[in-house]
Design a binder for these strands. Structure first.
Length: 298
DNA sequence: CCGACTACCTGCCCGC
DNA sequence: TGCGGGCAGGTAGTCG
């Protein structure tokens, strides 16, 4: 489920619960998710205090008081839920979220205060197990293989028209594939790439390099695309992430950005662009569905 | 180096 | 009602 806006939504939901908390216990229920867990994964976490929760692209970065970072990726189907003792009133008895199959609860972090009193359980659920967790020293994070080749963040000033022209110059691959390439821009996924391209009026099938060509008739295309990416991501974060199928915020409420998708999962519908009148189409591109309007995306 | 493709895994939805 | 096929938000690895 998670692209950058969903991961950021998860981060904002978890941060107030886990920052400053001590990890009292880690119930690691299997030896691997996408990858095998680090040796002594659970025991290295127990007793640590969480000093902060950050994000880089689609990665959650949990800073610990011993200088290590618990790096977590949600894959396609990962989610967290928070179970607080206060919800049941009885210590040890926790609120149950029936929307998640307990067979896919793979890691349970039991959190508490410095005196050892249990305050909450943070449960990682991931049916497809494409997510993963690993431990990396904070001062080695930027050199770690997961992060060394990540591109620019799509939320800030680093992403603009001139930078896009530079990144895409000479690329014959499609605009869509280039936007999904985490080495160029880190954090976009299938939904928001489709949405941003539609908003910018650009075809997903066009060669990425054409954005950098002066000869291209629309010299502002890259600037428009940068603005569209900013807007789509910002709106999705403000809305609390998408809720395609079952995405929930960490507090259990549904995100609602899905209600404002223009093209994603809307094949056959009328294009919402003013005055366009086209129809949204779906086509497979690089093994994944691309949703677009063939009339106004050129 | 780049780009295209596959594999990883379970759930769900569709058509037969 | 059951079953097979296709598809789902991501990305590491392989191959040309």
């Amino acid at each position: 489920m998670p692209e950058l806006p969903e991961v950021e939504t998860v981060r904002r939901g978890l941060a107030p619960v886990i920052e400053g908390a001590r990890i009292l216990n880690v119930d690691q229920r299997r030896g691997d998710l996408r990858f095998p867990f680090h040796e002594r994964f659970a025991s290295r976490l127990v007793g640590r205090t969480i000093t902060g929760l950050g994000r880089r692209a689609k990665y959650l970065l949990t800073d610990l008081d011993d200088g290590t970072v618990l790096v977590m990726h949600l894959g396609m189907s990962g989610s967290f839920r928070i179970e607080t003792a206060a919800e049941s009133g009885t210590p040890g008895e926790f609120y149950r979220d029936r929307s998640k199959d307990p067979r896919h609860d793979h890691v349970v972090f039991q959190l508490g205060d410095s005196a050892g009193t249990v305050r909450s359980n943070v449960v990682y659920n991931d049916p497809r197990r494409f997510g993963f967790m690993t431990l990396v020293p904070r001062d080695a994070l930027d050199r770690h293989p997961l992060f060394a080749h990540l591109g620019i963040d799509p939320t800030g000033n680093a992403l603009n028209g001139p930078i896009l022209r530079t990144l895409f110059a000479g690329k014959v691959t499609s605009l869509k594939a280039a936007l999904l390439d985490q080495r160029l821009i880190a954090g976009l996924g299938n939904i928001y790439v489709c949405e941003a391209l539609h908003r910018a009026g650009l075809s997903p099938f066009r060669a990425a390099g054409t954005l950098a060509e002066n000869a291209w008739q629309d010299g502002m295309a890259a600037d428009r695309l940068a603005a569209a990416i900013h807007a789509v991501v910002a709106e999705a974060i403000a809305a609390g992430g998408s809720s395609l199928r079952d995405h929930r915020q960490a507090d259990g409420t549904l995100g609602y950005f899905q209600h404002s998708f223009s093209v994603y999962d809307r094949a056959g519908r009328v294009c919402p662009s003013p005055g366009c009148g086209g129809t949204i189409e779906r086509r497979m591109q690089n093994g994944r569905s691309t949703f677009y309007c063939g009339t106004c995306q050129i």
